[in-house]
Design a protein around this nucleic acid. Structure first.
Length: 638
DNA sequence: ATAGGGTTAG
């Protein structure tokens, strides 16, 4: 029997009897589609669109009401929806009740754990799957092997590799590629190559993974050899080899490849752009940015990040504004972090606050990275209360969150809260690192807690096996010096296992000024001039001490000595946020076009302050020098 | 349903 169907605008199509049978069967199904299938499909659609936990619970209610909780098609989608909401424990509750889960359900669980970065859970669950005699398929292994690569599970990875061979999966392109990635991410390029070599048919993805394996161990020669041998090169492969050269700073080689590429996508341009940015070639970065045919958020992040890396913070803010207003590109969390960091460096608090509100409006409230940058901004700009508010809004805190708030509180002299948060941090199970202890120790310094400071210093070594760095020794010297224990401070310096640097001697010198110890000040200055013969700021500190003691002859003598070094102390520079930009100025600066008006306003303010009984304490100016800004390890210039 | 490519914080 032959049937001819005439289609509109189409040649008549001949349909064989066998096909007709299929059509008939299909129509029969359509007419008689059981209610259950319609229900399943409806629930699956609902689960796929599920974005909130509340919605999930509503859908689950319907699933249970229809008795489809353990259904082979619905259950995997339910688990996937849980994973999307990062509620794998909730998915697990259902999973553990399912009597005999099919492979799709197992895979959904494994994928869920992998998505939520619970890689050990993936490994454990897969072992369980094997011991229960369930059947993994070719979808299962890539998830599991990827997890082995993400954590240090070399033994398990090899075991699962054997499993893949026995199960006949080793030539599956997906399995083989994840095997290559797994071995290379653990640093076993040789094993990765064996898998690659054994592959009967290698597609371009496998070639890319193998080339990436060589790049990850900085073997650009082998990477390039394979690249030249590859039978097919797509844009991803070109971008991969290019970024290999960029990582090693070989910008010329990278650029040659970039120019030779048959076609470039946005990623190619962005890779090159980021390469220039990270190699501190901001001119090439700007030039390439202008030439780009298409720019996405990553392109803008590349340019903005390049400015930030080179310390051009005003340009960061400028290009951020262009990004929003001219280009209308929506920033992501990385953009916001870089911009907030720039605000913090420029003390541009108003701009920072604007970014804060903007970030919350586009859905970054409580975001870990953005939150950390905001805490830093508020702490650096002197509004520690705001920093605490942001800190409390972050539900999942990490080490940097804790470090930023503890150090911020300590710098602000809020030592009690700093130390109490350190306790909370330990209770929350976060392991402190060297930076945490910089905050803890400087908190002790602010409160004059010498004994406690030494106990914390001990626990850092004993409990957390952190090797103290120069900044920790510096904190201890500051702790002793500010407590007036100058001799002990000098003893401590002499017994340190590492050589004291200029910051440490400046700390001692600063303490000498507070406690008017001229003898040790001389010693400190001697060490300082050995370490930094060209830094006149050191002489200025001693000169201030002489002034305090009224030894004007010595002040004059030092002035000559400073002049003789031939170096001039660079003037301290201040910055101020005006409207939405940042202006820098020096003492007695007259470069601004509105100079006359500024000084007139300033005189008015001074008169106003004096009339309210304000007497400036000039001695306090410059005290920052011995505070030393331990968190930044920069000496404040007086 | 499964594999390859960029940037973010103290």
């Amino acid at each position: 029997m032959v049937l001819v169907i005439a289609g509109v605008n189409r040649a008549p199509k001949v349909i064989s009897g066998w096909s007709l049978l299929k059509i008939a069967k299909f129509s029969f199904n359509l007419a008689q589609k059981p209610l259950q299938i319609i229900l399943e499909e409806k629930l699956i659609l609902l689960l796929r669109s599920c974005r909130t936990l509340k919605h999930l619970h509503q859908i689950q209610g319907q699933i249970i009401a229809h008795g489809l909780e353990y259904n082979a098609y619905v259950a995997p989608k339910f688990i996937t929806a849980c994973a999307g909401l990062k509620k794998m424990a909730y998915a697990r509750k259902l999973f553990d009740r399912i009597p005999d889960p099919n492979t799709a359900i197992w895979n959904a669980m494994l994928r869920g754990y992998s998505q939520t970065e619970s890689f050990w859970e993936v490994i454990v669950l897969f072992s369980q799957m094997n011991s229960l005699g369930a059947f993994p398929n070719c979808f299962t292994l890539p998830i599991v092997l990827k997890s082995c690569g993400m954590v240090d599970a070399t033994r398990e990875g090899e075991e699962f590799h054997c499993f893949a061979i026995k199960g006949g999966f080793k030539s599956n392109p997906f399995v083989a590629t994840t095997l290559i990635d797994m071995y290379s991410s653990r640093g076993f390029v040789g094993d990765a190559y064996k898998v690659f070599q054994d592959l009967p048919e290698r597609n371009v993805v496998a070639w890319t993974s193998m080339i990436n394996a060589y790049i990850s161990c900085h073997d650009m020669v082998s990477a390039r050899r394979l690249f030249d041998l590859a039978p097919e090169r797509d844009v991803v492969l070109w971008n991969t080899i290019m970024s290999g050269y960029i990582e090693l700073g070989e910008m010329v080689a990278a650029r040659q490849l970039f120019d030779k590429m048959p076609n470039r996508d946005v990623m190619s341009w962005n890779t090159m752009l980021n390469g220039y940015a990270n190699n501190c070639d901001i001119e090439s970065c700007e030039k390439l940015f202008k030439e780009m045919p298409e720019r996405n958020v990553f392109s803008w992040n590349g340019l903005i990040g390049g400015y930030a890396l080179n310390g051009h913070f005003s340009e960061v803010l400028g290009s951020f504004k262009r990004m929003l207003i001219d280009a209308n590109v929506l920033p992501n969390d990385a953009t916001l972090v870089t911009v907030l960091t720039a605000c913090s460096r420029l003390w541009a608090l108003d701009m920072g606050k604007w970014v804060h509100i903007y970030a919350e409006n586009i859905g970054y409230k409580g975001n870990l990275f953005v939150g950390n940058a905001l805490i830093d901004l508020y702490a650096k700009c002197g509004t520690i209360e705001n920093a605490v508010v942001v800190f409390n809004c972050i539900s999942r805190k990490d080490l940097i969150t804790w470090n930023t708030i503890i150090n911020g509180l300590a710098v602000h002299g809020n030592a009690v809260d700093a130390l109490s948060l350190f306790d909370q941090m330990k209770k929350a199970g976060e392991k402190p690192d060297g930076i945490t202890f910089v905050g803890v120790l400087s908190a002790c310094t602010h409160m004059g807690l010498v004994r406690e400071g030494f106990l914390y210093f001990q626990s850092m070594v004993d409990e957390y096996s952190i090797v103290p760095q120069i900044e920790h020794y510096g904190c201890m010297v500051d702790l002793l010096g500010r407590a007036g224990l100058l001799d002990q401070a000098v003893d401590f310096v002499r017994n340190m296992p590492i050589k004291a640097d200029a910051v440490i001697w400046a700390t001692i010198l600063g303490a000498c000024r507070i406690y008017k110890n001229i003898e040790l000040a001389g010693l400190a200055l001697q060490r300082l001039t050995e370490l930094e013969p060209n830094n006149p700021a050191n002489f200025v500190m001693l000169s201030n001490l002489y002034k305090d003691l009224g030894r004007w002859q010595d002040v004059a003598r030092l002035k000559v000595a400073i002049r003789d070094t031939g170096f001039r102390k660079s003037p301290g520079c201040s910055v101020i946020e005006v409207n939405d930009s940042v202006v820098e100025f020096y003492s007695l600066d007259e470069r601004h076009p509105e100079t006359d008006n500024i000084y007139r306003a300033l005189r008015g303010l001074t008169i106003l302050l004096r009339s309210h009984g304000y007497v400036p304490d000039l001695k306090q100016v410059g005290q920052g020098a011995c505070d030393g800004g331990w968190t930044t390890r920069k000496k404040v210039q007086i």
